[in-house]
Amino acid sequence: MAEDLVFYANPMSRARIARWMLEEVGAPYRTEWLTFDGTMKSSDFLAINPMGKVPTIRHGKTVVTEAAAICAYLADAFPDAGLAPPTDKRGDHYRWMFFAAGPLEMAVSIKAFSLNVPKERERSIGCGSYESVMDALSFAVTQHPYITGETFTAADVYVGAHISWGLQFGTLEARPEFQAYWDRLKERPASKRATAIDDEEMHRQLAAAKG
Score class of each variant (00 low, 15 high):
L5I: 07
S124D: 14
P176F: 03
K119C: 05
L172K: 10
E3M: 08
A81E: 01
M51L: 15
A100T: 14
D76H: 09
A209Q: 13
A69W: 00
K186E: 12
R123V: 06
L34K: 01
L22V: 03
P28Y: 06
D183E: 15
L137W: 03
R90Y: 10
G82F: 06
V157H: 01
L185V: 13
P55E: 10
W33N: 05
F113E: 11
E24M: 02
I48S: 04
D92V: 03
A154N: 02
R184G: 11
M12I: 09
E200N: 12
E105F: 03
V157E: 04
V159M: 04
P176G: 09
I57T: 03
W20H: 07
S42Q: 05
D88A: 15
D44M: 04
P118E: 09
Y130E: 12
G149V: 01
F98S: 08
K41A: 07
K111P: 02
L74E: 00
A81C: 04
A194H: 05
I110M: 14
D198K: 00
I163L: 11
G149I: 03
D4F: 00
A15V: 06
H162L: 15
A27W: 00
A101E: 13
G26A: 03
E187W: 00
A154G: 15
M12Q: 13
A68G: 09
M40C: 11
E122K: 13
L74T: 01
A190W: 00
R95N: 11
F169N: 15
L167E: 05
F7K: 02
M51V: 09
T87A: 15
L137Q: 06
F169V: 15
G38H: 04
A194T: 01
V117P: 10
A136D: 10
M134F: 04
C71I: 08
P86R: 12
V64P: 05
G128Y: 02
G82V: 06
P11F: 04
S109Y: 04
